[in-house]
């Protein structure tokens, strides 16, 4: 707060000049202060510089690659960089990344919100602590282990579900299945949902915990059931927090590499059905193609990484703007 602008305070006995007041408000005058301020501000600026450097260097290498691309970078269904006339494009990757992330969000957000409510409002008091801890453990498991588990345990378990979906919803085309190994976008989406569940749960939980107790008690006093309390006071208060949590989860799902690389059996075409193997995501493609890529191939992968970077930037930026427009939500003080 700037002291010099507050005019409605009662004037003290001897009024300091405006210059003096400004100096008092600014504080940092001693050398130690200046050094410390410089250090901490420098770190902040360094973070901005890193972000800028990421954008600049990725763009630089991407331009090198795209300028030699003999096909349209945005619409080509091919990734062939080790030949004389390289052709590569991101159409398949855009589709696969969005589809798998959307599946993950559709599954994870409702479940995560329910678990957050369970921890804050439904679980017996003695249980909520351990449950929150178990969810934290889910968050701590490295993604490569999820990938291993997905390939060994989740994939075989999908057969039943896929058969059922094919029997009843196969006519839609989206859920038709050719009885291949269930290493498809739907399996990837489910695995991603499990992986982003903890982060959405944790952020939502923190927000739900900050709902003013008065709101809930007021609803209870009006005779509301527990669900009505949740619907009328908890969810409206926590909406922006849930949105930000979901966006964080979406960011994770978009950029997840190893779990997708181990579970999906990729191909460079777009499958209309979610159940048939094929397709690919940005991150998975980079990880799978990297070892066989020459220097030009690496530049091409960097170009696709730049697109992923821009997408995640947009998602996160949008989330921030949504939250900024809604009430002043801060994770720390409520």
């Amino acid at each position: 707060m700037d002291i010099s602008t507050t005019t409605d305070v009662p004037p003290p006995a001897s009024q300091p000049t405006i210059a003096e007041r400004k100096r008092a408000a600014r504080g940092a005058t001693r050398p130690g202060d200046r050094i410390f301020l410089g250090l901490s501000r420098g770190s902040g600026i360094l973070l901005l510089v890193i972000m800028a450097a990421i954008a600049v260097f990725l763009t630089y290498r991407a331009v090198l690659a795209i300028s030699k691309d003999h096909a349209n970078f945005l619409t080509t269904f091919e990734w062939n960089t080790n030949v004389l006339e390289p052709k590569f494009g991101i159409a398949v990757l855009v589709f696969g990344t969005i589809v798998s992330s959307v599946i993950a969000m559709v599954i994870a957000v409702p479940v995560a919100v329910a678990i957050a409510l369970f921890i804050t409002h439904y679980a017996p008091r003695r249980m909520s602590g351990p449950v929150a801890y178990v969810i934290d453990l889910l968050a701590a498991v490295p993604s490569i282990v999820y990938g291993l588990w997905g390939a060994l345990v989740l994939v075989p378990h999908m057969n039943g579900l896929f058969g059922w979906l094919n029997d009843f919803f196969g006519w839609t085309g989206v859920f038709s299945w050719d009885e291949g190994a269930p290493r498809s976008m739907l399996t990837v989406g489910i695995l991603l949902a499990i992986m982003i569940l903890p982060i959405i749960t944790n952020v939502s939980r923190e927000v739900f915990r900050q709902v003013p107790q008065m709101h809930e008690e007021a609803a209870l006093a009006l005779g509301a059931t527990r669900w009505e309390v949740v619907r009328m006071s908890v969810l409206p208060f926590g909406r922006s927090g849930v949105i930000s949590a979901s966006m964080l989860g979406l960011g994770r799902a978009l950029g997840e590499t190893m779990a997708v690389a181990t579970v999906l059996s990729p191909s460079f075409d777009i499958q209309a059905s979610l159940l048939n193997p094929g397709g690919g995501t940005f991150a998975q493609n980079i990880a799978s193609k990297f070892s066989e890529a020459n220097e030009f191939g690496r530049d091409a992968l960097i170009a696709s990484g730049l697109v992923l970077f821009v997408i995640t930037l947009l998602v996160n930026g949008a989330a921030r703007l949504i939250i900024a427009r809604r009430a002043e939500y801060s994770g720390a003080n409520a």
Binding site: I50, I54, L248, G255, F282, A283, L308, L313, N316
Partner: peptide
Amino acid sequence: VMTGIPSIVAGLF
């Protein structure tokens, strides 16, 4: 925004 950077993008940088 940086919390949302995929790990593979940091690697590519």
